[in-house]
Design a protein around this nucleic acid. Structure first.
Lengths: 139, 139
DNA sequence: ATACTAGGTTACTTTTAGTAACTCAAAAGT
DNA sequence: ACTTTTGAGTTACTAAAAGTAACCTAGTAT
């Protein structure tokens, strides 16, 4: 890639960024990235989405078993927030003991694909980041 | 896209997810997505990266002016964490009054590109999400 | 001598994340 | 007849993180 191409790419990036900020008249409105990352960007939401992406449908305690370290409360809170955003559906079967099934919606599956793209980038560069942290820690 | 293609895609997704979990032997290790989103996934980091992506280099108070609502402390904390991860460089010019310039590293620019991809998805689907929240709120 | 500048800290308060123990309703064991 | 188990959660609490307001430094201009 020559100098002109790099410059072209830079201009495209700037346009995109301007677009993001234009859309929310002067920073006080809602920024879609912030809004979305602010919701699913925590570790429990990510693990939950990944697990539901792998297994298609899962019950509450199956999820709890798969996501090691999560407490019942945090799983409830996480699932409710994903449900609220339309990323996950919750189906209750009124039996005793109760049975509840969770699965990703189409929207949730779309988000999963984005997450996996990010994961590819993360895997490629995680070592660079860890190295940077090491250097920073050493003064 | 016919049924076979959908099935193919699903298998690919599952392989990728299995890969992510394999890499960190049994969930206790570090998951690159979690690790990375856990660091830059907050609103101040996102705004900071976007601003530095737009302007190439910025001084502390320029950033403070551009990111409306951020306090000095939160900007310091955010910049330090981005610096620690090798996403941003901090250059001090030992003058009085001091001058400090921040810019994205190559790594930071790479992350910015990923963020912009996510922003594209977010813009396409933010209304669906907002609608879902409305529905959820109404019982 | 006072005020201003850039780029922060320190000490404090509020918000959020997370834990441990409890609930519900029926079924099965002792 | 009472205790335990099961699935899917709540409630009440504590620890940690995010955020605010006031202060600092060192030189320069008024």
């Amino acid at each position: 890639m020559d100098v002109t191409n790099i410059e072209n790419q830079r201009v495209k990036v700037q346009e995109k960024i301007n677009n993001i900020f234009d859309d929310r008249q002067g920073l006080s409105g809602c920024c879609p990235i912030k809004d979305i990352l602010g919701r699913f960007g925590d570790k429990w939401s990510i693990y939950t989405i990944l697990m539901l992406g792998r297994e298609e449908k899962l019950r509450f305690n199956e999820l709890k078993g798969l996501i090691s370290g999560i407490s019942q409360r945090m799983l409830t809170v996480t699932l409710r927030s994903l449900e609220e955003d339309g990323l996950v559906t919750r189906t209750v079967y009124p039996e005793i003991p109760p049975r509840v099934e969770y699965r990703l919606t189409e929207l949730g599956q779309g988000l999963l694909l984005q997450l996996l793209q990010l994961a590819d980038w993360a895997k490629l560069h995680i070592q660079e980041i860890l190295d940077a942290r090491q250097r920073y820690a050493q003064q």
